[in-house]
Design a protein around this nucleic acid. Structure first.
Length: 416
RNA sequence: GUGGGUGUAGCUCAACUGGUUAGAGCACCAGAUUGUGGAUCUGGGGGUUGGGAGUUCAAGUCUCCUCACUCACCCCA
């Protein structure tokens, strides 16, 4: 093979594309149901937008971005996530303000340079929502409910909502200090990754998977115990509203989100069957990001769903894939005159909204019928040169096998 | 970036400790039915065994390199 596909990318072939359309449609329907409007931002942005918002210390920024210089030497980056771009677009177009609520959703490809594995690609797709303008905990509950309803709609089961609060700039320093203090005494006995994390991002130690480190994690301080009164109150209200909505969740004080901008509520929707990369949805509140990116201080919350992961859950479990017929009419012809006439009828049928096709490979009549069967055509119009003279031909119902004589002029109305 | 596993036909897989012309099922094409699909039968096309080098009388099989895929770590959707 001369040209192969770049690593970490995937062709979505026709059979699977159908499923993608179903999932995307489900997303759009649910988002609309909750009064979210679509926003489409560019695939690339100025690099600074991502380094500022995601955080220069995060892995995404340090080693996972597709960054390149354009012809004028400007540094651009293929978006590794959408939130920063949506915030940028919102500020730039005056969509975001404290006086009004902006509820936006997006759907599209993201890019991160990582080693591919199950549930992780270099180009992957996310659907997500962002709400700007309110710190009301009901919105935290609403977006979580929205994601749960969406998963229900596409038929996914056995998902678990993990919920935590990572605090705000007021309470985070104290918690961070407590973490450092706790692990400092054990760090010499912990894995190399944890040693690095102690300095760089101490909160990440909490979800270390190393068996040897587990015993030190058990007694580690939980962020929930260090929340300031405002954050604590917010978290309690989110929990309360989720209860009212009947949304099941698990408080997970080990849940740490990887992007710097999160405040207060952090949540993930987990599918155990997925393997190591098992989060199908991740999100949370980011009350300071709009201000950090140059807008007026505006609270916000959002989430992103990993569409590849959703798709793989659906295909793994053979969930509802409607497989209706492809076309309504197949025109089978024999001889030059019939082929000419058939091609004209084909065009007429399509013009009137009847999906139709015919043979373009010069195949035998038998092979044409076979092909029509494969295409799941409802009807086949069989015409040879005799029929052209007669002005009528046999219309065969492929389900029953019955064939009746139909004039050319009557064909379309018969199929309508 | 690190570690493990796997690369044979379009797909799923065979080929005993290296041994003759690398096989099968499915799919595809054609015929049986000079102008009618799904079933059956018969025949057919398909491969540089991922690529390169080496060992050997002989390599799909052993060694090394390389590439790709895959799973996991880091991290994330």
């Amino acid at each position: 093979m001369k040209y192969g596909i770049p690593r970490g990318t995937k062709d979505i072939l026709p059979a699977e594309a159908k499923l993608w359309q179903l999932v995307e449609q489900a997303c759009r329907e649910i988002f609309a149901l909750y009064d979210y409007s679509e926003i489409r931002t560019p695939i690339f942005e100025f690099t600074d937008l991502f380094t500022r918002s995601i955080g220069s210390g995060t892995d995404i920024v340090k080693k996972e971005m597709y960054t390149f210089a354009d012809r004028k030497g400007r540094s651009l980056t293929l978006r590794p996530e959408a939130t920063a771009a949506v915030v940028r677009a919102g500020i730039e177009n005056n969509l975001i303000s404290i006086e009004s609520l902006a509820k936006l959703y997006y759907l599209g490809p993201m890019f991160r340079y990582e080693r591919p594995q199950a549930g992780r690609q270099r180009q992957f797709h996310q659907a997500g929502v962002e709400v700007f303008g309110s710190a009301d905990p009901r919105l935290d509950a609403e977006v979580i409910e929205l994601s749960v309803r969406l998963f229900e709609k596409v038929g996914l089961k056995d998902l678990v909502v993990n919920l935590n609060s990572v605090g705000c700039p007021k309470c985070q320093p104290e918690f961070r200090g407590a973490i450092k203090k706790h692990f400092a005494q054990h760090i010499s006995d912990m894995c190399q990754d944890c040693r690095d994390r102690l300095e760089q991002n101490p909160m990440r130690i909490l979800d270390c998977k190393e068996a040897h480190c587990q015993k030190y994690l058990e007694k580690a301080p939980a962020s929930l115990d260090y929340l300031c009164p405002e954050c604590k109150n917010h978290f309690d209200q989110v929990v309360g509203w989720l209860g009212n909505l009947g949304i099941k969740y698990q408080v997970n004080d080990r849940l740490v989100r990887g992007l710097d901008y999160y405040t207060k509520t952090a949540f993930e929707v987990i599918a155990r069957q997925l393997g190591a990369q098992n989060a199908v949805c991740g999100g949370g509140r980011y009350d300071n990001l709009v201000a950090e990116l140059g807008g007026k201080a505006t609270p916000a919350i959002g989430f992103a769903i990993g569409l590849e992961r959703v798709i793989s859950l659906i295909t793994d479990h053979q969930l509802p894939i409607t497989n209706e017929g492809n076309i309504k009419l197949f025109i089978a012809t024999l001889g030059e005159a019939a082929t000419k006439q058939g091609f004209a009828l084909l065009s007429q049928a399509r013009a009137l909204g009847i999906s139709a096709d015919m043979d373009f490979l010069g195949k035998s009549l038998k092979a044409q019928l076979k092909n029509a069967d494969r295409l799941k055509a409802a009807f086949v119009y069989v015409m040879g040169d005799e029929e052209v003279k007669k002005g009528s031909a046999g219309l065969k119902n492929m389900a029953t096998g019955e064939q009746s004589e139909v004039e050319f002029s009557q064909l379309i109305t018969r199929l309508k």
